[in-house]
Simulated scan of single mutants.
Amino acid sequence: MVTLAERSIVATAPPIVGARLDVREVDHGFVLNGEDLPVLEDVSFGVAPGEFVALLGPSGCGKSTLLRLVAGLDQPRHGHLVVDGEEVTEPDPSRVVVFQDPTLYPWRTVWRNASLGLEARGLLKQQRSRVDEALALVGLDRFAHVYPHQLSGGMAQRASLARALVNDPKLLILDEPLGKLDSLTRLAMQSELTRLWQTRGFTVLMVTHDVEEALLLSNRVIVFSDRPARLRADLVVDLPYPRHRDHPELLRLRREILGLLGLGGDW
């Protein structure tokens, strides 16, 4: 059995298979009760292949809206989202979203939930082994035939990650995937996410409201203003993995980010 310590070891030369993402001058908004509600304003940034980028900002500023645009679930009013040189116009199996809630089908086993992507694409018969491999990666191989109601919150989120990994994503889009977990489970899942990213080499774009989580997991932290969201800062986190919460540079970046979010005087 692989221990948590072994899972935290950084691969010396992890394969980089992730996609490049370019967000170019994106504006977006909605009509609410007959009035225009701007949500994103002139948002531009790039994400290199294999990079882990966290998005931080006030609640409701537009971070999750941006993730939907990157996933191809919605189209921007203005601007462009480009993945590996191709305009994003619709969802694609190479870009997979994991939400805060596991969204597992209660009538399907863990294995059948994880197999949904392959099944929808007509590939399950030829590629069944990928489901087993994904469940083993997240430590759920022994729970393949149980149902969602038999899982803890952390295990259910692992099942959601397995469902995403089955598709071999080049870009993993995470919308507060650990937000509803208890603190101890969240710490374990942070280590798990880091391990999966390091060993698989995909690109990660993650929304979180936890400043410490962003700094522990990501290469870069992008900080947004209040709605309509504009970029306030793009900070590089140049620290080795595994990271420690009391590292002086991490504490300095934490203070800087909290100041950008208007909370510097409270900490």
Rank of each mutant, 00 (worst) to 15 (best):
A164E: 05
A120F: 11
L181A: 13
L21W: 13
G29V: 12
S44E: 14
G139V: 12
G117D: 02
R230A: 08
E90V: 00
R112E: 15
S115Q: 08
N33S: 15
H247N: 04
A134F: 03
L253I: 05
W267K: 13
T194I: 15
L116A: 14
L118A: 10
K180S: 15
R220T: 04
L215Q: 07
G50R: 03
A71Q: 11
R232Q: 10
P49Y: 01
R142Q: 09
F30T: 00
T194A: 14
A71C: 11
L40Y: 04
A156V: 09
N33Y: 05
E212Q: 10
R108S: 06
L239G: 05
L171K: 07
T199R: 06
V43A: 01
H78W: 11
R230N: 03
A164D: 04
P248L: 00
S191Y: 13
D22L: 11
F202C: 11
I9S: 08
L37D: 05
E249R: 05
Q157S: 11
L55D: 04
S152T: 07
G262L: 04
P106V: 04
Q127A: 00
Q157C: 07
R220E: 04
S218Q: 09
L56A: 06
V2I: 05
G265Q: 13
R195V: 08
G29K: 00
V236P: 09
R227S: 07
S160E: 05
T203M: 05
L193W: 10
E212A: 11
G153D: 09
T3G: 12
G139A: 07
S8A: 11
G122T: 04
V236K: 10
L196M: 07
E213F: 10
L196K: 06
R112W: 10
A120H: 06
L235F: 07
R77M: 07
T185K: 12
L66V: 02
R186M: 13
R95T: 08
P242R: 01
F52G: 12
V211M: 08
A48N: 14
L165E: 06
P240V: 07
A71S: 10
L172E: 06
V82W: 13
V47T: 09
F143H: 12
G72Y: 07
R195Q: 11
I9Y: 12
L172M: 04
M189R: 09
S94Q: 10
R68T: 06
N33C: 14
V131L: 01
R142N: 08
H28W: 10
V97Q: 02
H247A: 02
V166A: 01
P58N: 03
G264S: 03
E256I: 08
A71V: 08
A162S: 09
H247R: 02
A136H: 01
L260R: 10
A229V: 04
P76T: 08
F45D: 10
H209P: 00
V26W: 04
Q190W: 05
L55N: 02
S94C: 00
P242L: 02
G154V: 12
R24Y: 11
R255W: 04
M155A: 03
E6A: 07
D266F: 13
S8K: 03
P248C: 02
L215V: 05
